[in-house]
Amino acid sequence: MNRGFNQVTGLFSFAEKYIRNDFLILKGEKTQSSKLGRRQRMAKNNPFVCLKSLPENPHIILADDVYTTGATLHHAADTLKKAGAGIIESITLAR
């Protein structure tokens, strides 16, 4: 399935000048997780890579459209923490 609209970007368009989406990238192809169970999702390898250095000790808010198991946010936060992020918080649109 290929999505044509990014719900997170659409919802937070009012804050566009504050949004940075150039630090993380998915390595390889994103595999669909919707058919996997919680244990399988949490056991997946971290799909994120940090592309560049973060500003010193930044406060980061991760946004995701749907929270199912938290694996996506967990992996993204882990990658950013290892890259030097300070406080990491998250917001999701639906659970």
Score class of each variant (00 low, 15 high):
Ala85Pro: 03
Lys35Asp: 09
Pro47Lys: 00
Thr92Glu: 01
Ile25Met: 14
Thr79Leu: 00
Thr72Asp: 08
Arg20Cys: 14
Tyr67Leu: 12
Val8Met: 11
Leu54Tyr: 01
Gln40Met: 10
Ser33His: 09
Asn2Arg: 13
Ile88Met: 05
Ile60Arg: 04
Phe5Cys: 12
Ile61Leu: 15
Leu11Asp: 09
Asp78Glu: 13
Cys50Glu: 03
Pro55Met: 04
Ile25Glu: 11
Ile87His: 13
Gly4His: 06
Thr69Leu: 01
Phe48Trp: 04
Ile25Lys: 13
Thr68Pro: 04
Gln40Phe: 05
Leu93Asn: 07
Lys82Ala: 15
Gln32Ala: 15
Leu51Tyr: 07
Thr69Gln: 01
Lys44Ile: 05
Arg3His: 13
Tyr18Arg: 11
Val49Cys: 13
Cys50Met: 05
Ile91Asp: 01
Asn6Ser: 12
Gln7Val: 10
Thr69Met: 02
Tyr67Lys: 04
Lys27Ala: 10
Gly4Ser: 10
Leu51Ile: 09
Ala71Asp: 05
Glu56Cys: 14
Thr79Met: 07
Arg41Trp: 06
Gln40Val: 05
Thr72Val: 12
Leu36Lys: 10
Arg41Phe: 07
Ile88Lys: 03
Gln32Phe: 11
Cys50Val: 15
Asp65Lys: 01
Lys44Met: 11
Arg95Met: 09
Phe23Pro: 03
Asp22Thr: 03
Ala71Ser: 15
Leu36Ala: 02
Lys27Leu: 08
Asn6Glu: 07
His75Glu: 10
Cys50Lys: 04
Val66Tyr: 10
Arg3Gln: 11
Asn6Ile: 03
Phe23Glu: 00
His74Asn: 10
Ser13Thr: 13
Asn46Pro: 03
Lys52Gly: 08
Ala77Val: 06
